[in-house]
């Protein structure tokens, strides 16, 4: 074997090797991708298969019952609505206030801003069950002592989604170009007038999408509420913040642990409803995002 032959075959084999490696790598990437898609597909199909049979108009209007034959989710739907809307509104107000203060009224490099920012990042990383402990110690018992009511659950979930909402609203405010503010100042507006009349309207789509995502997090959350004291049977809708209640994720949790096969179907049906609600909310967020895409 001459040297030139050897080099040629070497070059040939490395090219082939490279090509094989490239193909292998692509297969690995496809596998990862398929894993995500298959997971989503299996999850949805598996839920549909076990749940579709139990879905009916009655399922939405009936109340939870000890018997699977006449169980429904009305009180959980209304409970979810109460808790999610309350925590959504309260956390939006708090998040907006915080974001406006940080973005519009403080110096980005000030100590105060850095302190609050770090603090919010820390809160965003706290596991949801720890918010359950906080709710248990401060809201359900302790200083507030509200018991396991709509109010306690909403307060706990508000604290949980607040960091996410703050981050989202800050991003929305940041996206508003400073030229808009400067123009407003040049016309003699005060800071608050600028924020109120120029920045907030401009940031509205971003704030809306951010808060919808925060609210959908609150809608699906179960862990802190399990800790606060899940109820087994509530067959009426909440009437106020001091009402007993149950929410969809808790009902799903409860039904998942029941043994009778029928309850598994009910849990799957409730999951379908929950996923549809979340999907609708996300769709709204996407539509808002696309409709109001302003190019600065």
């Amino acid at each position: 074997m001459t040297t030139s032959h050897f080099v040629a075959s070497l070059a040939d084999s490395t090219t082939r090797l490279r090509r094989n490696k490239d193909a292998g790598f692509l297969i690995v990437l496809w596998t990862s991708l398929l894993l995500a898609i298959i997971t989503l597909a299996t999850l949805v199909i598996n839920t549909l298969i076990s749940g579709v049979g139990s879905l009916s108009p009655d399922f939405l209007t009936w109340f939870p019952s000890p018997f699977p034959e006449d169980s429904g989710i009305q009180s959980a739907l209304f409970g979810s609505l109460w808790v999610t809307l309350t925590s959504g509104v309260v956390s939006l107000i708090l998040a907006l206030g915080t974001a406006i203060y940080l973005e519009e009224f403080t110096n980005p490099n000030s100590r105060l801003q850095r302190f609050i920012t770090t603090n919010i990042q820390t809160l965003a990383g706290v596991p949801s069950i720890v918010y359950g402990i906080l709710g248990l110690a401060f809201v359900v018992r302790g200083p507030l002592g509200w018991g396991f009511t709509v109010g306690s659950a909403a307060a706990t979930l508000t604290m949980m989604v607040l960091p996410l909402m703050i981050v989202a609203t800050r991003e929305a405010l940041k996206a508003v170009p400073s030229s808009l503010r400067e123009g407003s100042y040049a016309l003699g507006a005060t800071r608050w007038q600028t924020v109120y009349r120029q920045v907030l309207p401009a940031a509205r789509p971003g704030i809306a999408t951010g808060s919808i995502l925060g609210v959908s997090r609150a809608l699906g959350e179960s862990a802190p509420l399990i800790l606060l004291g899940a109820l087994a049977y509530v067959s009426y809708n909440p009437t106020g913040f001091d009402s007993d209640f149950t929410v969809l994720p808790l009902l799903i949790f409860k039904w998942s642990t029941e043994v009778q096969e029928e309850f598994r179907g009910l849990a799957a049906a409730a999951i379908i409803v929950l996923l549809l609600l979340l999907f609708a909310m996300n769709l709204v967020a996407i539509i808002i995002r696309d409709r109001s895409r302003i190019r600065w």
């Binding site: 989503l40 299996t42 999850l43 598996n46 699906g220 949790f253 996923l275």
Partner: peptide, 24 residues
């Protein structure tokens, strides 16, 4: 197409994953 798939998957509540873990 892929980004929304990831977003939807990220938005699935954990109790739904719990059901999936238990029964699938």
């Amino acid at each position: 197409i892929l980004k929304p798939v990831l977003e939807v998957l990220a938005g699935v509540p954990t109790v739904v994953f719990g059901f999936f873990a238990l029964f699938f």
